[in-house]
Amino acid sequence: MSNIKPGQKLASSVCSTEVMVIKAPTAGLLCCGGVEMVAAGSEPASGEKDDALMGGCQIGKRYVNEDQSLEVLCVKAGEGSLSVDGAALTIKEANKIPSTD
């Protein structure tokens, strides 16, 4: 099963977290709190949250998998943490570019 497509907005099934997919591999199941995320605005998926996966998501942070083939932006904060196919996502390092606008 796969639920990731670049440009798509996904919502958590267990908390208020919402993410936008920036970059994605061809397939993968993105979860929040251990339960699959769904297209924003649709019914949450069934499943019990995993208390070990409730570290939280911060708005404005970008999250990546280990080889950085998946990158998502948290657009709404929540209590769940993100994982893809069972592997936890981590916060991507911040841009250090001086403002040019």
Partner: peptide
């Protein structure tokens, strides 16, 4: 397109990186 402008902003700016009393 949305994808171009979003790529530009996310690739160059960090969300809420300004101080509260900064102004441009």
């Amino acid at each position: 397109r949305n994808e171009h402008l979003v790529s530009y902003i996310l690739g160059s700016i960090e969300f809420m990186s300004a101080d509260e009393d900064d102004a441009t």
